[in-house]
């Protein structure tokens, strides 16, 4: 499509050029003696030839530019695609699933996030994931280590049910030892009661 467009553009320059030269020649015929006429025709032909060469150059240039443009676009496309892949991976690692206090059942929001994670793992069969279970600071860290273990396992079991191979999933509990938000309020605690994914 683009190629045709450029050709059309080039022709647009050439045809008026030709028209211009002929109209000039006609004028010359009227004012000049007949003997000089062949020379004038030669000149016109030379001019036309020159214009033709110019047009050819312009066309070549246009084609080259077109080729470069296409390369640029292809590169941008590839980059965008790569970015989307990276974006998916970043999302896989940075979108956590959250739990209620002292609970390890998966809420509906958590389940839909896990479904996306399963899709990502299916689309990337070579990656393995470590699921980390975390708790808020309330309660004893010893109990929270067990709770974090259950949270990571809830996520793992959900992914197993979605067809992810067990060999691709490991779990670890960090209990309350690695909070995202160190605040001592419900907003901070809610952020810390999570399971998060790490690709390895």
């Amino acid at each position: 499509m683009r190629k045709k467009y450029w050709i059309a553009l080039a022709l647009l320059f050439i045809i008026p050029g030709l028209l211009f030269t002929t109209s000039c020649a006609k004028k010359t015929v009227k004012s000049e003696p007949a003997a000089k006429a062949p020379a004038a025709t030669d000149e016109a032909a030379k001019k036309a030839e020159l214009e033709k060469q110019k047009a050819e150059l312009a066309r070549q240039k246009a084609l080259e530019e077109q080729r470069l443009d296409q390369e640029r676009l292809a590169k941008a496309d590839a980059e965008a695609k790569k970015k989307t892949e990276q974006g998916k991976r970043v999302r896989f690692e940075q979108e956590h699933i959250y739990f209620d206090f002292d609970k390890y059942n998966l809420k509906p929001e958590a389940q839909s996030v896990l479904k996306m994670k399963a899709e990502f793992m299916k689309a990337n069969p070579n990656i393995k994931a470590r699921i980390e279970g975390h708790c808020d600071e309330r309660g004893t860290n010893e109990y929270n280590l067990a709770l974090g273990d259950r949270r990571a396992n809830s996520a793992k079991e959900f992914l197993l049910n979605l067809g992810i191979d067990e060999s691709r999933l490991t779990t670890i509990s960090h209990g309350e030892e690695r909070p995202i938000d160190k605040g001592k309020n419900e907003a901070a605690w809610a952020k810390n009661r999570r399971a998060q994914f790490v690709v390895w």
Partner: peptide, 9 residues
């Protein structure tokens, strides 16, 4: 001690 290698703590 608490171990969870068989699935749960």
């Amino acid at each position: 001690a608490t171990l969870s290698y068989e699935g749960d703590p």
